[in-house]
Amino acid sequence: MHILILPSWYPNHANDIKGVFFRDQAQALAHYGHTIGVIALQRRSLRTLFPKKQNNKAPHFELDEGVPTYRCQVLEALPKIPYGNYFLYKRAAKTLLANYVEENGWPDLIHAHSTLFAGAVASEWGNENNIPVVITEHNSGFALNIYRPWQLKVADKATQGAQACIAVSPSLGEVLDQRLPSSKGRWEWIPNVVAERFNAPASKKYSAGPTRFLNLALMTEKKGQYDLLYGFSKLIGGGTKAELWLAGDGPIRAALQELANQLEVSSQVRFLGQVAPNQVPSLLQQVDAMVVSSHYETFGVVAAEALMAGLPVIATRCGGPECIVAEGDGLLVPPRDPQSLASAMDHIAKNLSEYSPHAIAERSKSRFSGAAVAAQLTYLYTRLLTSNSKVSQPKS
């Protein structure tokens, strides 16, 4: 089956974490036996028009582990004009789509990630050329209610033209039912892929010293690291021997470091900085548990990655983690609640031996591995291609 992937954002180089799960899914589908192509547009604002350095500039074409990947940059030059940046994006995307078809032939199906704007372009282009379209929505902006009316209209129209709509969590599907009327009742749940590099080694063991908790996230207020630090200070104050490793970077990093000093836990808190995707699996093998302290997540891929690596997970009930952390995998706690985080970390530290790394990893693999998710997507693709009469005659 020939599947063309059109993501709304995508990694630009090997160490880029932005949209890495889109690439993981494309690779998983290729390994499953499909013919896969990717069209990835990098959206740039006027503020980045003349950067001092342009490291890792993406090429226009590359074979990314055998997957043809077409790239270009789109300057979002019309931010204050409704539909302005969408039209710029659509023009660039349709040029790449034409180039792709000329060099690779017509795809059987196009799978877009996020309605704004890849899904909108895919929906229009697919209907123009009799190609069925699948849209997967990942975007937390719908739950946070940050979009303008014109953006919601673009997203809603995209779902009208799609033959299938996927949400990466049941919670996000419920939000989209409310925000996008044309899609109400149509959202199916298929999770994000966790790449094979996260598979737990057979010899995974917990550390013999203080229990090591890891938080891996962009350092912004919505990721809840303030709550986590307050909770961790309560944990340490109660006499539990533990360490907190904070991996990532962002606008509140300095404030978090200052808070750790104020709470007198700086000697037990490690700030690791940004961690490249290929370094995350080895990092997971150095810690005992993952903590996701977010205020909202559409999915929460780091929780699934930690489970695949055999780690128990503490996560807030913030949308996505509820469909990830199963019984025996860890604990779910309310968001914005430092005391609940402290109690959960204390429970994990005192009962770590009750969590089997092998059992946790196997449960996660059966749900989130590349093969498991590719099988679900293949079933959906096959259903569409056998039931949709539009696929038989693409335009020439």
Rank of each mutant, 00 (worst) to 15 (best):
W9Q: 01
Y10N: 05
Y10A: 09
K18I: 13
G19P: 06
R23S: 11
A28G: 13
I36R: 13
A40H: 00
R43D: 11
K53Y: 15
H60G: 10
Y70T: 01
R71L: 02
C72I: 04
K80G: 04
P82R: 00
Y89R: 10
A93G: 03
L96P: 02
Y100F: 05
E103A: 05
N104L: 08
W106Q: 09
W106I: 10
A112P: 09
S114K: 05
A118I: 13
G119W: 00
A122F: 00
S123T: 06
N130E: 13
I131C: 14
P132R: 00
P132K: 14
V133K: 09
V134Y: 12
H138A: 02
N139T: 03
S140N: 11
V154M: 03
V154W: 08
V154Y: 06
Q160E: 04
A162P: 04
A164Q: 14
I166S: 14
P170A: 13
S171G: 13
L176H: 15
Q178K: 06
K184Q: 08
I190S: 12
Y206W: 08
S207R: 02
A208P: 06
L218D: 13
K222N: 04
Q225I: 08
L228N: 13
L229R: 04
L229E: 14
G231R: 00
K234P: 12
G237H: 07
G237K: 04
A242P: 04
L244R: 03
L244D: 04
P251I: 09
Q257M: 05
E264I: 14
S266N: 07
V269Q: 15
L272W: 15
L272F: 14
Q274Y: 14
N278Y: 12
L284V: 15
Q286K: 08
S293R: 01
V301P: 01
E305D: 07
E305Y: 08
M308T: 12
M308H: 05
C318Q: 01
V325I: 09
A326E: 12
V333S: 09
Q339N: 14
S340T: 00
N351E: 03
S353K: 03
Y355T: 04
S366G: 02
F368C: 10
A371G: 10
A375N: 15
Q376A: 12
T382A: 03
S387Y: 07
S392R: 10
Q393M: 07
S396F: 10
